[in-house]
Design a protein around this nucleic acid. Sequence first.
DNA 1: CTGAAAGCGCTAACAC
DNA 2: GTGTTAGCGCTTTCAG
Lengths: 337, 337
Amino acid sequence: MSVTIKDIAKIAGVSYATVSRALNDHSEVSEKTKEKIIQITEVMGYSPNAIARGLVRKNTNTIGLLIPDITNPYFPEVARGVEDYAISHGFNVFLCNTNWEEKKEYDYIRVLREKRVEGLVVAPVSISSHQKIEEADLKTPVIYIGSKSGDKNENYVILDNAKAAFMATEYFIELGHENIGFIGGYENSSSNVDRVKGYRDALKKHCLEKEINVVKSSSYKRSSGYALALELIKEGRVPSAVLAANDIIALGVIEALETHGYTVPGDVSVIGFDDILFASLPKINLTTVAQPKYEMGGVAAKILLQLIGCNNVDGDKILNQYIVEPKLIIRGTCRKK
Amino acid sequence: MSVTIKDIAKIAGVSYATVSRALNDHSEVSEKTKEKIIQITEVMGYSPNAIARGLVRKNTNTIGLLIPDITNPYFPEVARGVEDYAISHGFNVFLCNTNWEEKKEYDYIRVLREKRVEGLVVAPVSISSHQKIEEADLKTPVIYIGSKSGDKNENYVILDNAKAAFMATEYFIELGHENIGFIGGYENSSSNVDRVKGYRDALKKHCLEKEINVVKSSSYKRSSGYALALELIKEGRVPSAVLAANDIIALGVIEALETHGYTVPGDVSVIGFDDILFASLPKINLTTVAQPKYEMGGVAAKILLQLIGCNNVDGDKILNQYIVEPKLIIRGTCRKK
DNA sequence: CTGAAAGCGCTAACAC
DNA sequence: GTGTTAGCGCTTTCAG
């Protein structure tokens, strides 16, 4: 098959241990033989077999990245962050899209384990993913992005979701809104729970809680935002402001509203989460709670590599539980009531 | 370290070959021992070592996917297509984002080769990627998405770009436009070249070629569309219609135009390529040439698996050079001149 | 500085 | 049915 270390040893007239040493830049090889070997290596188009090397060295220099929806611009941005950090520290990343399916997530975890990735950064499908991963007993560090289960020993990087929702809701209130709804993603996702909490706390603080507040959840998709908003319209209880659990849901909400005679922000104000690239388009101009996506990915990768024990990790140690401050980006989808 | 086949053999009181056979479902193992082994396997949390298996079987059941910009919604959609097909046929995919950098692409090819992926689907950074990959002499099948070099033996799935651009340009002409510009991506990308050709052919056919047609190219990014449109504005030669090489460029063009006092489609009509998800938002409502992204990914994966010799491949054989028919999606960014 | 040899975890003949 | 053994391509002692 492909050329091996033995082939090149034969040609160079040395033992294949020497070839190995030369290729791995061990100091105890004479410059002369090293050069010779490297040259042969090149003419023969030798490519080291990472599989074989991994077997003896017991490492793969690979981490896994589990993402639920590569189609939501939030995640590619995060992925770029972890990838860039990992690559620049000698690790490759195996990016897997779980498509919001628990089974797919589970299958990937199994496969990645078999492939002996040295760590996992996971943006879980749901809160139960944490337990599932715990049970899988990977023996390999795991860091969560955007989700936490409450386990004290868990590693995560996450937006301060409660605070973020609180901020956004208070902003609505400052604008004079009293009937504020929340349209969420997966009801049992960690961030959804925290965002509902922040939203409720803000209402409570301003004594706006008596209202029959609308809180709906289904999934983190545009279609779901659309469908939920449609329900509201049909039920005749469209609030004057809605906080959506992410930008694409917000986009779906706006779409439903506008195709049914409501104007945004004229009739209803909308705030999203994430600040995806498309939120800033003049025509979209969505008010939203920003997350430093790329940076969060980088931080997650850094923490993971720390955990793996990669000593290349640059700069100071980071805490294993990293909470990001939210930032409200005020654009054009909100208006004074 | 982690539990191996030998550990479980010892406990089961059999040779480790038997364990291997049981785990791989070879028929020549008694049901009884098989069951026993599988049970031990579970209590001990055994996970087969894909590295070791790969070494002896000489396969990895993994393909590589090179994508230039995971941040452009076009590519995640394609990626999902290849991933879904690959997964359902027993292959995993190593998704790599080259970020439009030749070096990164090159590095990934090297790494993927070392990891012994069994095939590559690549959406190249530029036309020179083909040669580079050719020279790398992977000994592994490669299929290109959205790009071809002219090499007759090459495998690809691609939109009929010339036809697509021709269609779009003729549509402009039907609407009465005579001053039509083209704002491209990378000048030396295969699709850009073909699209310029289609655009020029359409102008030629309708004797509109004498005009000093604007053809500008830089990169497949929104910022580049914005910058190029800005140039046009400053040079005072804004056409009445512009064909953009993809949707995010189109979005950038529209953004530049609208923030400088032009209206779309009032003053200038715009057509993009790809029909990304966001193009269909009512507020964007971009007229565009659609590509069946997900399907193209699936087809690419299918062809690649055929090439690899995976006999699971379902249905009929597909040609190794698959050209997709373009489809013009007429929405709201074009108007009669 | 270099060679010989063991062994990483597993599969696949080949025996019995 | 099951055990024995060689070996996948490489790194790494241990000698010399």
